[in-house]
Structures are given as C-alpha cells and as structure tokens.
Design a protein around this nucleic acid. Structure first.
Length: 762
RNA sequence: GCCCGGAUGGCGGAACAGGUAGACGCGAAGGUCUCAAACACCUUUGACCGAGAGGUCGUGCGGGUUCGAUUCCCGCUCCGGGCACCA
C-alpha cells in the first residue's frame, strides 16, 4: 500500500529428528510424515491470510535443495572449510547422534531432547567457522540487532588476546609445553604448570613414582561427564594430581612443578596453562589446596585483603618489568621479550570451536562423499548429485541410522580408481539447511547455481529479519558464517557479508510457562478459531495482546480476549455498513447530509490524528497501541453517530474508509470485504494508497492544561495551544479549584510549561 | 559470581522527550432492548475515607535529585535470560 516491493518468502526446514522419531514410533516414513505436516501447516497459514510469495516456497528435504546443499558442501571441502577429524565430541544418547557445541546447553544437556550429553572420541565432519571468528565479532558492531543478541554472540565467540610461549620440560630432551595466557606480564609469578589430563605430554612428564597416581587420575577424569568436569563444585585437592615432572619458566629459569587438573581443557588454547596464583584466583585456590608457593608480581593496593589481585599496580619480583604500573604496557613488554628471544608470540584465542556438522541420523541431507580404501575421502561427482536418501529403509528402535545398514546405499564405486568404496552415512546438521535459504529465496528457480548473484544483489541483505531469541547464537551465527563463506567462494555476492541488517526477536506464546509442542500436548490449534471467530479475530488478538517482543502465556482468559477482538470487528462491520444495512444499534437514519459543524470537524481532526498515530505505532512495532487507537476511534464514532445531532455522512465515510486502510494489514479479510461492499467499483483495498495525515488538521486550537498545586493536579483547563507563559499563569491562578487548594497562601514559585502545565508552589 | 532484561489495577497491557498514572481490551457490577435468553447498546469499575462535593494513598522495597519521578541517580528484593574454571 506504500508502494514498496517487499519479498516475504516462505519455506519449510523439513529435515530433522521429530520426523525420524515419529517414523521409529509409528513406522510411517519421515517423508510421508513431513509432507503431511507441511500440508497441514500450509493450510493453516493460508487460512490465516499470511501473505507469502508461495511461488518461492522451499522445502529443505526437496532433492533440488539437497543438491545445492551438497554442492556447497563440496565447495567448502575444496576450500578446506569443511574437514574431517577425530575429536572429542558431544554425544546425545537420546538423539543417538553427535551435537555441535552450540547445541549443548550450559547445564550439559541437549537443547533438543534434554538428555545429558556425554563425550566421545569420534571421526566427524567440521566447518571451519573459527576462521571467520574475528570478522564476525567485529561486524557485530555495525548490525542493527538487539544488544543482548550481540552480547550473546560476543560471549560465544569469546575472543581473548594474550601470548603463547614454550616451557622446556626438565629432563626430557626436546620436549616443551606450550601455554597460552592473557597475562604474560605476570609470568615471573608462575609457580606451577597445569596440563589437561588428555595432554599428549602427560606420559612423558610423569615420573615413575607418580605414574600410578597419575594414571588413576586420568582414568577417573575420562569417566567423568563434562558437567562434573566443568562445574566449580568439589574440593580442589581431588581435582588435580602432581606428575612428578618439572618445567622451566623461561622468564626467570625457575623450576616449576607440572600438575594435571580436570578443569584444564584440551580443547581450549594449548591444553596447558602457566599458573600464577598471585594474580589469578583459580590458580590461588589450586595453590592453596596443594601447598604451592605464591609470588606476587603486581603489588596490590594498600590495605588489600583479598587473595589473587588482578588489577593494575607496580610490577615487583619481575626483573625488567619491575616498576611498570600499566598492565597493557607490561603485557606488551613481555610479549616483545618473548618474540625477541624466540620463545613465544602474541596470540589471540577464541572460545568458538569449529562447527561439528555431521549427524548419525537418516532424515537429513547426506554428506556427498565416499570413502575409498585407496583414494581416501572422495567427492561424489557433481553430475551424480544430489545423493538421495533411500526410501526402502527400516527404522530401528534404538535410533541407529538405517543408512549404515542399507547395502545399496552403502556400496558404491570410487570415481577415481573405479574400485569398491563406501558411501558416507552421516547426514548434515539441519542448521546447515537453514544457513543459506534466504539466499536461495532470491531466485529459487535458478538451475545453474545455488544462489543467483543478480537476484541476491537485488534483494539481499534481508532488511528485516524476525525470529525467536532461541536463535541468538545457533542459527544466527551459522547464517553469518555461511553468508561469508559463500561470498568468499564466489557463490554469493562478494560484498554481502551480513545476511540480516536488522533483527527483531519476537516473543513466544507459551502455555503454563513452557513452549507449546505436540509432545507436551499443550498445542492450541488455530483451526477452531478460523471456524468460529475467523482468522482476522485471531490475527487481531495476536497483535493486540501485547508488544510483539514479549512472551504471552495462553490461559483460560485468552478465549475471552479473542472474543473481545471479534466484538470489535463486529462493531467495525456495523459502522462500515450503516448506510447499507440497518443494525440494531445503528441505522442509516443516523446519517445526514449537511454542512460541516464544529462537532463534525472535530471528528475529522481525530481521524487525522488516528492516521498519524497508527503510522508511527507501526513504525515502532507497537501494534497493540495501534489497535487500541482504532478501538478508541470506533468508540468515538459510535457516540458520534448515536448522538441526537446525528452524524454527517461525509465525516463518517472518511473515518470508516481511513480505518479500513489502517487496519488492512492487520485484518485483511474483513477490511477487504467491507471495502468492496462500500466501493464496488473501486480498486481493491489492498491496492489503495496508504492514508496520510493532513498536517494542517493535526494542529490543535485548544488543549487541556493541567494546573498543579505543589505537584498535585488541582484543575484541568481548556486553553489555546498558543497560550503564553504569563497568560497561562494568570489563567491558572484564576481557577476556583486552584484558589481553594491554595487556601489563601501566597505562591512562592510558579512553574509554567505552556500549554501543557502550570505548577504553583507554596 | 559476572552481564543483560523485567516488576504498573482482579488479568493482558498503555503512558514514544522528567509534566494528567492506569489508554485499549478482558473480567466484574448495574441498566436498556426481549415473553425470556443470546446478541447488541449504554453506564460504572486502582485502593481507602465520604451520602456527596471532595480528600488521602498508590507504578516491587529503601533512600536521593527535582517545583514535579513509572521515567533520572544510589542501595536492595524477587522473577526471567545469557555467560560461568576459556587460562
């Protein structure tokens, strides 16, 4: 209605575990199950009147989409962005598959099934998302996204700057321990070193007398869940062990004992840390538990009663750093020294790990490679893509992927050597499917490339993206990675680095505080409302119930609120048809042809104010107040039409037609129907120009001025909007009520903010 | 522990720049229409005191700034979310 070309696409992220779990339970093939559910959903969306461009509809389980998914994977493989390695990974026993780090909640459970995730060493596929860590971190600043989402992404990427350097191991020729630290300036205070239990040097540094103890410790840690390992609970003296070995601190050539501790992670940094108890609280605690010495290298301020001190202060016990107070300067000097002596270097570390994308499940997009005993990992030739999922599969109760037992799928020939080879049976994480769909939407018909560059240049980036806060890290991080990775491979426009310019995180409708889901049985079907009060009443309710960013809990009262929305639409209908059909409360005899009276002009001005208000409410996502404003206008119109003076036809017509246009995006069916009845020969409502308020009519001649005495409202007076300060004070002091409130006292001070307010202070 | 967000009538919420707290809707109460009901329409509805006019209190709690604070500042409580041995 405002003349913009808006692309509002729709698609279905149709791979994933729910369909496969249903297959295991009922024996219905996931494709059959999925297609049926999509049809149901589409039917609801259509009845709801959602205005999508259905021509562009995508399904991620569609062979065409799978093909491009696989083509992209292979391009990433060529570029080294996709790789396979053995790594300790998150295994969800409930889902019978591995998970990405992003899919494990803070409490160590699976974000999907809620099962406790365990660690396994497995050969898995990864995307090198870490190679974009820095760019993705820096680009966050330029995004018009909610700050909390940006904060979450920053935390997740977790950049930390420091140094990495090597410590020779005493008595082991050539062996050295690499450590990463953010505080190289405190290295003179290192009194011990801690390795992760999985560290490759553990065996080498362990002395014979400590071997039994170390082995027992390593064994125990291996059996521990990640939650136990990463929780700060438990006595520290049970969480580490002395190896018997020593390393040399290169800064001052001091011998430092080498310990193991369960909380040192092999997956972060180098898997080894230098411990400086004086300037790190964790190291302090560990030192206290094992009776290790503490050497302060930063003098704490006078009166310091704490333990580790991490602030600024003059360096002590640090030879050539002594006396430097500024931490940044000391760090720089320490790093310079490391570099000059070829011991270490400046280093940036990230919390972000590479994205583990392989899944040991059936209902996903197959990873298009095969394993040849001679040629190793070989891509399935592009002309053979997509690799499809076989249909004749049996779903095993345990959830083991049927692909692993499907001979015809499994057995293939190597395109390189012609010998027998095995197909990869892992499928892709469904987050892969949703990481580039927005680029495909620009031209889903292109049969030559996953993304049509011209179309993508025309539409991308997405001006306004809407999604739930649950995607703050998962989907939104992956999509940002994919957009860059595709752009850098020439598969998407090179200049588009960010997929979503603006982000709005909408709230959820919950029931008894939890997300609605079929498995919980707390779904509310829209169908029953379509059949009774109609789609528009339900739509209006959604907009009216509260700010779109807030959650709303569905309760017994909700039906009554929907009824209220339905009532409003009934009132609108009767008002809009008053000259066409008589109703019980309104009829055409209430309308008269006449010259404009003052009352008519006031209604007219109110309509202009309504237009102004609704426009700005739309702009600021305040749909609930836009609806409220329309309700208020309609109430006013009822009083106007029912008044003894009756109503002027032209005035009512302008008011009603304006309201129909303002409400057209919210309640499209009823407004379009009413428009057609009122204007059978005109263009349809949704082709009409959006209403504009006349600035002249927004001007008010008079306004209500509040008069306060000592900050309390004592009177409200009608005054000219142009009233000056002296006149406002004069009028205020002349008020009967104000004089009564003053009770003869003399005003000590009068604050005038004409024309809105005068405050008399005594 | 750290970092965000929030707390307003019986309920969902409004107050967009420090200036009328409670728009709009739900619920509730009363009325008109009707044989009756439903529908519709009208009125009232933050609490307390008062017959009424009117008054006092009131935006999680305690302070502060200001002529004036739901709004700004300080200190808490509770709720929700994120991060949490990341070296």
């Amino acid at each position: 209605m405002q003349g913009y070309a808006v692309l509002s696409p729709i698609g279905f992220d149709s791979f994933g575990l729910p369909a496969e779990n249903a297959a295991i339970k009922t024996g219905i093939h996931p494709r059959v199950f999925t297609d049926a559910r999509i049809e149901e959903l589409k039917s609801s969306l259509r009845r709801l009147g959602a205005s999508y461009d259905w021509r562009r509809e995508l399904h991620s389980h569609d062979p065409e989409y799978m093909k491009w998914n696989q083509v992209i994977f292979q391009k990433f493989l060529d570029a080294g962005l996709a790789y396979r390695r053995n790594a300790p990974v998150n295994w969800c026993p409930g889902c019978q598959t591995v998970l990405a780090n992003e899919q494990v909640l803070a409490d160590g459970t699976c974000e999907r099934s809620g099962d406790l995730v365990t660690r396994r060493d497995l050969e898995q596929w990864f995307f090198r998302i870490t190679s974009y860590a820095d760019e993705m971190l820096e680009a966050l600043d330029g995004l018009d996204w909610p700050e909390r989402v940006k904060v979450m992404q920053r935390n997740w990427i977790g950049r930390s700057e420091g140094a990495q350097f090597a410590l020779p191991v005493e008595g082991v020729e050539g062996a050295h321990i690499d450590v990463f630290t953010t505080r190289p300036d405190t290295a003179f205070g290192m009194t011990f070193v801690v390795l992760a239990p999985e560290h490759p040097l553990v065996v080498a540094v362990t002395t014979d007398s400590q071997r039994a103890e170390v082995e027992a410790f390593v064994e125990r840690v291996r059996g521990q869940s990640d939650i136990d390992r990463q929780s700060s609970e438990g006595p520290l003296d049970k969480r580490g062990v002395f190896t018997g070995g020593y390393a040399i601190n290169p800064f001052n050539s001091t011998r430092v004992p080498i310990y193991l501790a369960d909380y040192v992670l092999m997956t972060y940094g180098t898997g080894a840390i230098m411990a400086v108890p004086a300037e790190d609280q964790r190291d302090w605690d560990f030192a206290a538990a094992y009776g290790l010495p503490v050497v302060r290298t930063v003098a704490p301020p006078a009166g310091w009663e704490g333990e580790a001190y991490t602030g600024d202060g003059p360096r002590i016990n640090s030879q050539w750093l002594d006396g430097i107070t500024d931490t940044a300067e000391a760090k720089q000097k320490a790093i310079d020294w490391l570099v000059a002596n070829r011991i270490g270097e400046r280093k940036v570390n990230y919390r972000l790990r590479d994205w583990l994308l392989s899944r040991q499940r059936y209902w996903g997009c197959p990873i298009p490679v095969l394993h040849c005993p001679i040629d190793g990992i070989v891509k399935v030739p592009e002309d053979q893509l997509p690799v499809l999922l076989p249909d004749d599969v049996e779903f095993l109760p345990g959830g083991d992927s049927p692909l692993r037992h499907h001979k015809a799928f499994l057995e293939t020939t190597c395109p390189k050597c012609g010998g027998p080879a095995q197909r990869e049976t892992d499928t892709m994480d469904t987050f892969v499917d949703s990481s580039w769909y927005f680029l495909r939407f620009c031209d889903p018909w292109d049969s030559t490339a996953p993304v049509n560059l011209d179309a993508a240049r025309r539409w991308m980036a997405v001006d306004q993206y809407i999604g739930g806060i649950e995607h703050a890290i998962l989907h939104l991080l992956y999509a940002r990675f994919y957009t860059r990775a595709l752009a850098d491979r020439g598969l998407a426009p090179a200049e588009i680095r960010e997929p979503f310019s603006r982000l709005f995180t909408q709230g959820m409708i919950t029931m008894e505080g939890s997300k609605m889901s079929k498995s919980k049985g707390n779904l509310v079907s829209p169908e029953k409302y379509f059949d009774t009060v109609g789609a528009d009443s339900l739509r209006l309710f959604h907009l009216f119930v509260g700010p779109p960013g807030d959650d709303f809990d569905w309760s017994e009262q909700t039906d009554q609120m929907i009824e209220g929305c339905h009532r409003f639409l009934g009132r609108l209908w009767r008002m809009a048809t008053v000259s066409l059909d008589a109703s019980r409360s309104l009829d055409s005899s209430s309308l008269v042809e006449r010259d404009e009276t003052a009352a008519d002009a006031e209604i007219d001005r109110q309509v202009h104010r309504l237009i102004d208000r609704v426009c700005s409410d739309y702009e600021r996502w305040s749909y609930n107040t836009a609806v409220a404003a329309c309700m208020e206008m309609l109430n006013t119109l009822y009083r106007y039409v029912q008044s003894p003076e009756r109503a002027r036809t032209l005035t009512v017509d302008f008011a009603v037609d304006s309201m129909l246009k303002l409400l057209a995006p919210m309640v499209p069916h009823v407004t379009a129907e009413l428009w057609e009845r009122r204007h059978p020969d005109a263009e349809p409502l949704h082709s009409q120009a959006w209403p504009a308020a006349d600035p002249e009519k927004l001007k008010q001649d008079t306004t209500v001025m509040v008069v306060q005495v000592n900050g309390k409202v004592r009177d409200k007076l009608d005054v000219a909007t142009t009233i000056g300060e002296t006149e406002a004070v004069e009028v205020a002091l002349g008020s009967e009520r104000v004089r009564a409130a003053l009770g003869g006292r003399e005003p000590a001070k009068v604050i005038a903010r004409p024309p809105k307010l005068v405050n008399v202070v005594v």
